[in-house]
Write a protein that binds this DNA or RNA. Sequence first.
DNA 1: GTCTATACTAGGATAGAC
DNA 2: GTCTATCCTAGTATAGAC
Lengths: 192, 192
Amino acid sequence: MKPNARERLIEGTRQLLWERGYVGTSPTAILARSGVGQGSMYHHFDGKPDLVLAAEQRSAELMQQQIAEAFAVEGTALERITGYLGRERDVLRGCSVGRLTADPEVMADDTLRAPIREAFEVLHEHLRRTIAEGVAAGEFAGDLDVDEIASAIAAVIQGGYALARAAQAVEPFDRAIRGVLSLLRVSAPRAN
Amino acid sequence: MKPNARERLIEGTRQLLWERGYVGTSPTAILARSGVGQGSMYHHFDGKPDLVLAAEQRSAELMQQQIAEAFAVEGTALERITGYLGRERDVLRGCSVGRLTADPEVMADDTLRAPIREAFEVLHEHLRRTIAEGVAAGEFAGDLDVDEIASAIAAVIQGGYALARAAQAVEPFDRAIRGVLSLLRVSAPRAN
DNA sequence: GTCTATACTAGGATAGAC
DNA sequence: GTCTATCCTAGTATAGAC
């Protein structure tokens, strides 16, 4: 029961976009990666942008699933945030969604940019809500701006990938994550 | 006295790399941007990788200059860090050095990766030292790991660009910066 | 639906004139 | 040193057979 051509094209394109971005992803490479022929691709999709959009939507969907799962667990706010940040990640590969922010073709086209924007909005909303709960529970300092902290945490993840890739080592990513978590922890009202 | 062809090729390539990355930067585009002819390019450089390396080195050099300037000012540790984070930046354009971490061709080649790695090392070192001074001066909590905080701050900058580009708005970048600074401030020993 | 054949443009580099 | 002409391959898409 091998997956159908359409599915394989989406997944092949998704992988290539993740590794090489929009310009770096050629139809020829997609066909080779997906193991289908030229005609099959143009039967299922209008062309490269159409196929890319489908692949982006898939990546965004997967990211949103992982976010939902990570934040659905029981625990304190700090535990849930720590859990999401500590998820198993192929750090040197980076983020399949964040990678696309580097592509001018994607950023310049509102349709192609939408899945990226939405995935980050969903992450921000989960972080925001969790941080607000933590503040309410006295876990974090009450004078923190929840949107600012949420953006800082999301940025640490994305930027952590960049630092790690530059060093070709996972350590800078892990350090950055531990750093922001230690700041969050230390921000706790003196009660603790 | 227009700049010579060599200089214009480096600057044109630097701009294109910044916008479009390695695969997205074609010799043809470089020539158009630089206003020189084909022969001129292959006279001064061995080919695309050689020219790209020169352009990368220029970007890394500029980044290191800006870092040195920002951290050379008088002030508390927090003021110097805030100063660097608040530097004037074309946020939606992103980081000319960080952009290249997305390129597999650059990351896979140690020579092409070196300028990126070094620029981030220099930034890390300045942040690390400044944070250590802040801890010594009682500005920040003493139980913070300076390397972790330095990595977190560097990551917020790079990740902030990604968030801003995804939203096509500067606000997420600014929020992330304010967020990490507020955590740093709030981490201060209760003395304040 | 999927394949192969074909077409056209652009990427990347060389040769040789000036 | 710089330019134009030329070359070959790969990117992107269409046509039409099976």
